[in-house]
Computed example of a mutant assay.
Amino acid sequence: MDSVNTELAGLEQVIKRLQQAKRVLFITGAGISADSGLPTYRGIGGLYNDQHTDEGMPIEVALSGEVMRRTPGVTWKYLAQIEAACRAARPNAAHEAIAHLQQHCPVTVLTQNIDGFHHRAGSEDVIEIHGNLFDLYCPRCGHEETVADYSGLTELPPPCPQCSHWLRPRVVLFNEMLPEKALAHLYATTEEGYDVVFSIGTTSVFPYIAHPFVRARHIGALSVEINPAETQVSDSAHLRWRCGAATALTCLMTGLKM
């Protein structure tokens, strides 16, 4: 524990603020699921790195709204690869710690991840700003359904049971707009305020991810970044913990005696 604590400068300060907090905001990216065995899409251990797909296009093109509309089978192929990685994994100690903190104070989670792990771990107030792989809908008739995984999908893209068009996951593909409901939830949370905000496992390249963290200094909230590497918001953090999410949050929960 002592060796871990040396990485977590200001741990006692964070514990004290959490004990007094009326609301806590967690902002999470792919890095929080790394301890679940999920690869990030690029970088070290990435699912795709800088390689093109079998179709000779960058992964950002294959996973774009335009390709989904034009050739949905191509986009579904790579969505299924992502889902296969999720299926073999489960929420880790970091997801569970965040959910457990709900017993102490209101917690909101803003996540870019589409793996559904925060919900599975028990978090209740989750803003899935990029959607969820397991919520399917028909772009033509609006039919909706939720699946546990893709093992029961015998065709890709799967046909809509109502109109025989094809279904797609309710996720934000490249060059698509963010969901209005999730954005409204984010704006309301930001406006309501929070006493502590964590940025975990995200490079925060998107303004809507960076803004709530950067805003902490303007509203008197404590900002803590948990990420092994420097990011777009590192300079705005009051505290920077250069370790993995599961390690940091397990130590934090031990300190809180939860």
Score class of each variant (00 low, 15 high):
residue 65 G to K: 04
residue 72 P to W: 08
residue 175 N to G: 09
residue 105 C to A: 12
residue 108 T to S: 14
residue 97 A to P: 04
residue 153 L to V: 08
residue 65 G to L: 14
residue 124 E to N: 11
residue 103 Q to R: 13
residue 100 H to A: 15
residue 202 T to H: 04
residue 245 A to R: 04
residue 174 F to P: 11
residue 7 E to P: 01
residue 83 E to G: 13
residue 235 D to E: 15
residue 125 D to F: 04
residue 152 G to Y: 06
residue 40 T to F: 00
residue 43 G to D: 09
residue 41 Y to K: 12
residue 84 A to T: 14
residue 27 I to D: 01
residue 26 F to H: 07
residue 60 E to C: 03
residue 47 L to V: 06
residue 97 A to L: 02
residue 197 V to N: 04
residue 53 T to M: 14
residue 89 A to R: 13
residue 73 G to E: 15
residue 153 L to W: 12
residue 180 E to K: 13
residue 224 V to T: 04
residue 249 L to E: 05
residue 209 I to P: 00
residue 190 T to A: 08
residue 87 R to Q: 14
residue 59 I to F: 12
residue 134 F to Y: 15
residue 56 G to D: 12
residue 80 A to E: 10
residue 230 E to F: 01
residue 217 R to N: 14
residue 181 K to E: 15
residue 167 L to R: 12
residue 28 T to L: 04
residue 19 Q to W: 10
residue 179 P to S: 09
residue 248 A to G: 10
residue 18 L to C: 12
residue 129 I to T: 01
residue 215 R to I: 04
residue 16 K to N: 08
residue 11 L to Q: 10
residue 154 T to Q: 15
residue 232 Q to G: 00
residue 127 I to E: 02
residue 29 G to P: 05
residue 245 A to Q: 05
residue 101 L to E: 06
residue 16 K to C: 09
residue 179 P to V: 01
residue 218 H to E: 13
residue 249 L to P: 04
residue 214 V to N: 05
residue 221 A to V: 11
residue 91 P to K: 03
residue 93 A to W: 08
residue 109 V to F: 02
residue 45 G to V: 07
residue 217 R to Q: 14
residue 238 H to W: 07
residue 253 M to T: 10
residue 22 K to G: 15
residue 191 E to M: 06
residue 93 A to L: 12
residue 204 S to H: 06
residue 48 Y to M: 08
residue 2 D to K: 15
residue 131 G to M: 00
residue 15 I to Q: 09
residue 115 D to V: 00
residue 39 P to D: 05
residue 219 I to V: 14
residue 104 H to C: 10
residue 115 D to C: 08
residue 12 E to S: 13
residue 23 R to M: 00
residue 91 P to F: 00
residue 146 T to S: 13
residue 222 L to Q: 07
residue 25 L to E: 05
residue 188 A to H: 12
residue 98 I to P: 11
residue 53 T to D: 12
residue 162 Q to N: 15
residue 179 P to W: 07
residue 82 I to T: 10
residue 153 L to A: 07
residue 83 E to I: 09
residue 140 R to D: 14
residue 61 V to N: 11
residue 29 G to L: 02
residue 250 T to N: 06
residue 205 V to P: 03
residue 120 R to G: 02
residue 187 Y to A: 10
residue 52 H to M: 15
residue 229 A to P: 02
residue 54 D to T: 11
residue 106 P to S: 11
residue 215 R to V: 10
residue 63 L to P: 08
residue 131 G to W: 01
residue 15 I to F: 01
residue 58 P to A: 14
residue 224 V to Q: 02
residue 124 E to T: 15
residue 76 W to L: 07
residue 252 L to A: 03
residue 143 H to P: 01
residue 220 G to S: 08
residue 193 G to K: 07
residue 148 A to W: 01
residue 77 K to R: 15
residue 1 M to H: 08
residue 103 Q to G: 00
residue 134 F to I: 00
residue 27 I to W: 05
residue 255 G to V: 01
residue 203 T to F: 13
residue 144 E to P: 00
residue 151 S to E: 14
residue 75 T to W: 03
residue 211 H to M: 13
residue 206 F to L: 13
residue 164 S to P: 01
residue 96 E to I: 02
